[in-house]
Simulated scan of single mutants.
Amino acid sequence: MSAVRRWPLHPQPGPLQALSSWLGRLAELYEMPVHDLLRHNLGLVDLALPVDLDLNPPAAILVSLAEKTGVDLSQLRSMTLTGWVPWLFDMLPVGVQDAQSVFDAYVRDNSVLFARKAATHHVLRFKPEWAGPWLLPHPGALRACPVCIADPDRGMSLMWRLALMTSCVEHDCRLLDISEVRAARILGQETHREPLEPPRAALDRYTHQALTTGRVALPGRNVHAGVWFRLLRSLLDEVSLAASSQGTHGKKTLRLIWQNTGHPERAGLNVWRPFEQLKDAVREAMWDAAATALQMAADGLITARGHLSSALQAPLHDYVYDGDEPSPHRNAWQDFTAAFQEALTIARTDPPTARQLLALLTIGCRTLDHFEKERASLHEEGVPAEFLPSAGELGRLDLI
Rank of each mutant, 00 (worst) to 15 (best):
V282G: 04
G70H: 06
S327R: 13
G95M: 14
E190A: 04
Y319G: 12
H379D: 10
A267G: 15
L316T: 12
G214E: 00
R330T: 10
P274S: 04
L38H: 11
G83E: 04
E265G: 04
Y319A: 12
L81S: 05
D318G: 08
A293F: 09
T345N: 07
E372N: 15
L44F: 12
V112E: 01
A391R: 05
A118I: 05
H307E: 13
V63L: 15
Y319R: 11
L9Y: 13
L113H: 02
V181A: 02
D335P: 02
A281Q: 03
H317Y: 04
L142K: 15
E276C: 03
V223R: 03
L399E: 00
E194I: 06
Q277P: 03
A118R: 06
G226Q: 02
P315C: 07
A376K: 00
A131P: 06
M296P: 06
D335H: 14
S245K: 08
N331C: 04
W272N: 11
E380C: 08
L175M: 05
C168S: 08
A298M: 11
A339W: 00
K252E: 14
S240T: 01
V227S: 04
W258E: 13
F229N: 09
V85L: 09
M1L: 14
S111W: 00
I400A: 01
D36Q: 14
S64W: 02
V282L: 07
F371C: 04
L55F: 13
L16A: 09
S20N: 11
T82Y: 03
S390I: 03
L236I: 10
L55I: 07
M1R: 14
D204I: 09
D237F: 05
A343K: 13
C145Q: 12
A27F: 02
A131R: 12
E393D: 10
E386C: 15
E393C: 06
A99F: 13
L175W: 07
A217I: 08
P219L: 05
G70C: 00
L16Q: 02
V96Y: 10
R25Y: 11
P199A: 09
P389M: 12
K117P: 07
A304S: 12
N41C: 11
E284P: 04
L278E: 12
E380N: 11
P133F: 09
D335E: 11
F371Q: 00
R283S: 06
T213M: 07
P384M: 01
S20M: 10
A141M: 13
S240F: 01
Q259R: 15
V239Q: 04
L231W: 02
R283Y: 13
